[in-house]
Design a protein around this nucleic acid. Structure first.
Length: 261
DNA sequence: TTTACTGTTAGGAC
DNA sequence: TGTCCTAACAGTAA
């Protein structure tokens, strides 16, 4: 369920298992919806190696030695696996990169929202997309600038990849839950202090999830992630969890300790 | 059988 | 021009 931490876990998996191995071949699954590197671009990659990875927000980049980068976006349901030769392939593998020796890097994407494409330069790509600063690397002032002056709902601001890259629905809710802010609050109505706290919460949460390799069961029980259900008792206070739609997305929040500005 | 869902983006309203 | 909102994309699971 890919937001920044899931993308980072996938990047690590690639960095640990798929670098510095000679690319032998590509296998394509059902990819009619995808904008994959062309046949000739793939041919150019055969015989080379991936040597570096990069991540910005939810976007993963894998760089080949001398040539272009591959950009990977996991979409709503994508995942990355590194498997040895002969291992059973999961369903919905769209693209496999096969390395000398038999190991394979497999991109799985049941719902077809994921994307892979050839990119000349990672930073140029980020600029062209208009992505905001990466949520783990953004500083206090830049965060206040990007989020604090938005007139719409603070939750929508957090989700805007043009303002801040990497936060998705789940961790936006988690950060607002932790800082006691109602998701519908106009971001520009929040005090500088609360914006600062929100910045800290976003980064603490993302870091903690990254440390578990996005394994939710390892996260503390009093996090909202384990309590996303209307009518539940709030794990932080005596309140009740409720569900509402904010900016078109499902939001869970505590009726008692999350307030408007 | 119906409904909801983690993300992105085109198109339209204001 | 900018900002915000909605719908649509596909497949699965509850």
């Amino acid at each position: 369920m890919p937001e920044l931490p899931e993308a980072e876990a996938a990047r690590k998996r690639i960095a640990d298992g798929a670098l510095n191995r000679t690319i032998e071949d590509f296998r394509l699954g059902e990819v009619s919806h995808m904008d994959l590197p062309s046949e000739s671009e793939r041919q150019r990659l055969i015989g080379t190696q991936f040597t570096r990875t990069h991540r910005h927000g939810k976007y993963i980049f894998v760089g080949s030695k001398s040539g272009p980068w591959l950009h990977i976006h996991l979409g709503m349901s994508g995942s990355v696996r590194v498997l040895e030769e002969g291992a059973d392939l999961p369903d919905y593998v769209r693209l496999s990169v096969l390395f000398e020796g038999g190991r394979g890097l497999h991109f799985r994407d049941p719902r077809k929202f994921g994307r892979i494409a050839r990119v000349e330069d990672a930073e140029d790509f980020v600029a062209e997309k208009g992505l905001g600063p990466d949520a783990l690397r953004i500083g206090d002032n830049a965060f206040a600038e990007a989020i604090g002056r938005t007139k719409g709902a603070v939750k929508s601001a957090l989700l805007s990849q043009k303002k801040l890259a990497g936060v998705g629905n789940l961790w936006a809710d988690e950060a607002l839950f932790r800082t006691g802010i109602d998701p519908e609050t106009r971001a520009c109505d929040l005090s500088a202090e609360r914006i600062g706290k929100l910045h800290g919460a976003v980064q603490d949460i993302l870091k903690a999830v990254v440390e578990t390799d996005a394994t939710y069961s390892k996260l503390p029980g009093d996090w909202l992630i384990h309590n996303r259900e209307a009518g539940r008792d709030c794990p932080r206070c005596s309140g009740t969890i409720a569900k509402k739609t904010v900016g078109g997305r499902t939001s869970y929040h505590c009726l008692t300790h999350q307030e408007a500005a």
